[in-house]
């Protein structure tokens, strides 16, 4: 399930949503850990996956590519995938890449499990 120091995975007790929370920088050296975590979670065919980015300080295009890949897999498996907790710097790269409309993005985990 990847390195818990880089990505934590938990199930929301109420909704059953799987919450994937990367930490620190999601760049070329660390995005493979996030990719593996998302693949492991999606392998369980959850109804909802929440990617909590509130502890992510930085993301580059390798992180974006990882999330695009996971979103495509989610759509193919009828899994609802929602991103939350972005800071302005992380949000900026989604907007530069014009990907902010491709994802469902909300502010908090609470909103994400209910969205």
């Amino acid at each position: 399930m990847g390195d818990p120091e880089i990505v934590s995975v938990n199930a929301d007790a109420t909704s059953g949503a799987m919450i994937v929370a990367p930490r620190g920088d999601v760049d070329m050296s660390r995005s493979p850990v996030l990719r593996q975590s998302l693949r492991d979670v999606q392998g369980g065919s959850p109804a909802r996956v929440v990617v909590n980015l509130s502890d992510v300080d930085y993301m580059d295009s390798s992180g974006l590519a990882t999330l695009v890949e996971a979103m495509r897999a989610a759509k193919g498996a009828n899994t609802k995938m929602i991103l939350c907790g972005m800071n302005d710097k992380v949000r900026a790269i989604f907007e530069i890449a014009r990907l902010h409309h491709f994802f469902t993005i909300v502010d908090s985990v609470d909103q994400a499990v209910e969205a």
Binding site: S61, V68, R72, I93, A97
Partner: peptide
């Protein structure tokens, strides 16, 4: 092209 949403290939655009 950014209309082609797929993993990778964004670096030069960014």
């Amino acid at each position: 092209s950014l209309t082609d949403i797929r993993p990778g290939g964004l670096g030069v655009h960014i």
